[in-house]
Design a protein around this nucleic acid. Structure first.
Lengths: 248, 248
DNA sequence: CGATAAATTGAAGCGCATCAAAATACGTGG
DNA sequence: CCACGTATTTTGATGCGCTTCAATTTATCG
């Protein structure tokens, strides 16, 4: 873990100005900013929260990509969710005691750290933001539900299409779209395999099918989608448009 | 849908006295009871909340079994979670607009219905219970995570063992254990298949393996587990002991 | 007791895993 | 900037777990 440079005040947080993020009142923003205790950094590949650990804090992902995962004693690993800027990290651990899953950095990341008992104060003094927190928890479950539906029922090709559509949209929503229309894509094929419940070899073959059909371009750590509709059709995947999300 | 008989006041709710349910203060209990608007009944097999619907209410499952599911246009269906008495129904729909999944009754069920805008009042006037609600949402995601881990990484046999251990424990915790040590088990093999992401045929074959090994007894709608440790070992599945859960 | 759903069994085939090895990209120090 | 070691991607070949199709047997229920 790397310790942080001077802390970024929430009022100046670049995420706040994204179009898909709900505006907070100046009061709320000031309160959150006061609660922020640390700004952590981790290098790509580092474990941010180990499986089964207890942590005095919970976090918001400020910069970079990470993922939630669970693993079995024999080494099999399931990636539960990809985390992008604005996502909450370690809420479950907060509420449940020991963390039921681990968190690992995909790229270099920065996280805003909050004290565990901030939660109590939040619910007592800021009901609207407490409701936001619950909204985020419910939203998190909805994402996991979608992945479960994929892994349980869709073919390898369908799963892949679904994942790429989903990640692309979220990356765009996090303001990561580049001038050429592509977004950064820091997952290795092994990561993708662990999300989709496929072997790395099969993941590679499925990717090639999508490439040969001209549906995606994936190289040098960037993903571009030729025809989003066509890719959605492969996956039979249509996300319902979500309202602006809150972040803490 | 069948309309209810006289409403059961929450103070007399049989679930409240279960050992795994957290006690509420008399104040909290009285408030909840005042919020309860209806008591619905549905027959086994009926759809309680269709996929994509909007509902003015959300519910707590009072009696009986149900399940959450998502399905694809071509008919494939993934069961996301089995719902037992005390479980919250339709919270996501509440917070997200249209319901991202459907709910169907496995047995005859009764549900306690609450108005949608009760949520706002809950967060404003009853912070501790609002925190409970968030706890429940986070807990729900943890359950889905476990299933995702199974479906993504475990073999058919392991998944089956995991599911049976899990359901058995929850049924016991809901006070459903009978004198002979078995619990009711209203799922058909097709239901199990749709939870585990297996075909019905393979589900049947995997069940027989567990039966021949003497690990489970499953007949006449009841499940008994011979050696829970052995079954957990098959699944490599150890649940962390959860603290007493709240219900609304 | 007949009708319908659920459980069971058999057989054939495919999607994906696994093993193995080569080709390519990537990071690092000299 | 090149050389080297290491991680990642790619390709081929083989096998198994699971699906699919089809038919039979067994429960369930009005």
């Amino acid at each position: 873990m790397m310790q942080g440079s001077p802390m970024l005040p929430c009022e100046a947080c670049p995420l706040r100005s994204l179009p898909d993020i709900r505006d907070f009142t100046p009061d709320q923003l000031a309160w959150i900013s006061r609660q922020k205790r640390t700004e952590l950094r981790h290098a790509a590949g580092e474990t941010i929260i180990p499986e089964g650990s207890k942590d005095e804090r919970f976090y918001t992902l400020l910069r970079g990509w990470a993922f939630r995962y669970k693993s079995l004693p024999d080494g099999r690993r399931q990636i539960l969710n990809i985390l992008l800027p604005g996502d909450l990290v370690g809420l479950q651990a907060e509420l449940m005691g020991a963390s039921p899953h681990g968190i690992e950095a995909l790229t270099d990341v920065s996280l805003c750290g909050f004290r565990r008992d901030m939660m109590w104060e939040l619910f007592r003094d800021h009901p609207p933001m407490a409701l936001d927190l619950t909204w985020l928890a419910a939203h998190g479950e909805r994402l996991t539900d979608d992945v479960l539906m994929s892994v349980g029922q869709r073919s390898g090709l369908e799963r892949m299409a679904m994942l790429l559509v989903h990640i692309f949209r979220r990356a765009v929503s996090s303001g990561l779209k580049r001038a050429d229309g592509a977004v950064p894509f820091p997952l290795t094929q092994q990561h993708i395999a662990d999300v989709l419940g496929l072997s790395a070899v099969h993941t590679n073959r499925v990717l090639q099918v999508l490439r040969k059909q001209g549906l995606i371009t994936l190289k040098e750590g960037a993903l571009a989608i030729g025809d989003v509709r066509a890719l959605r059709r492969v996956a039979e995947y249509w996300e319902q448009p979500a309202p602006a999300r809150p972040i803490l």
